Amino acid sequence: MNPLSPLNMDRHQRVIIDTQAQEWLASPAPGVWRIPLEREAAESGQVTSLVRYEPKTHFAAHYHPKGEEIFVLEGVFQDEYGSYPAGTYIRNPPGSCHAPRSDSGCLLYVKLNMFPSADHDVFRLDTHNASWQPGIDAQVYTMPLHGFGNEQTYLVRWERNASLHSHRHDGGEEVFILSGDYHDEQGEYGPGAWIRNPAGSQHQPVTTSGCLMLMKTGHLPV
């Protein structure tokens, strides 16, 4: 993988990445590592990635011209505004600045520079203290995290042997599997799988043991 080249930026294409099989790449900050999933440029532009901080590491203070979205997967993430344990969802709006660090080490799912200019809310949510809502099926539950325009971000919890009817994602769908198993007509996916289904795609998803996932819909180009 060339760390300087664009990666998976044609969002009309379906992409599947098993992040557990990927190599961690060094960032400009010692002890901070990344697995890029989609990337516009080396250190700027739109990026989706996993980011791992070793204990007692930090990144220099920096701006996010078009915002930053974070879900803390493991450990405790910190900046000058607070400490955020695993399960915390964070939105830093366009133009925000911070100096991130982790004293104990952490693992993050991060999306950079993808906010509409009018989406300027600062938001923090500890999902362990939020409520689940019934989904479109009796065995599927959702936890809304953020919505702006057509874009919706939420956690989805599938019970054992849950399934959904075949359905279409007019604005696309992006999924990161946190735990459990998940499959559809095109494959089987386990923890750490990142799936981007383009606008207009259709599938019939199923789980056997149950599944927890981070999902975003409505944000991909038609």
Rank of each mutant, 00 (worst) to 15 (best):
L212M: 09
R39C: 11
H58R: 10
P65C: 08
A118Y: 07
W24D: 05
T88Y: 03
P36H: 08
E68D: 03
F77W: 10
G190M: 00
A130R: 13
S179V: 01
K111F: 02
E68T: 05
N92G: 11
A86P: 12
F77V: 10
E40S: 10
A42Q: 14
D184S: 01
A118M: 06
R52D: 02
V47K: 09
E185T: 12
Q13D: 07
Q133R: 12
P6M: 03
I35E: 00
E173A: 02
E151S: 15
G45E: 02
G87S: 06
H62Y: 02
D121N: 12
G82V: 14
E40K: 09
F77R: 07
L4Q: 10
E69Q: 14
Y81N: 15
H64N: 08
E151Y: 04
P55Q: 06
A118E: 14
S163K: 13
Y141N: 12
S163G: 10
F176C: 02
A29R: 05
P93F: 01
S96R: 11
N2T: 09
Y141T: 08
A162K: 11
G187I: 00
F176R: 05
D184P: 00
E188K: 13
R101D: 04
I17P: 06
K66V: 00
A199K: 12
Q13N: 12
R34H: 04
Y189S: 01
G45T: 07
I17R: 05
R34F: 00
V156M: 09
E185S: 10
T207K: 00
S209N: 09
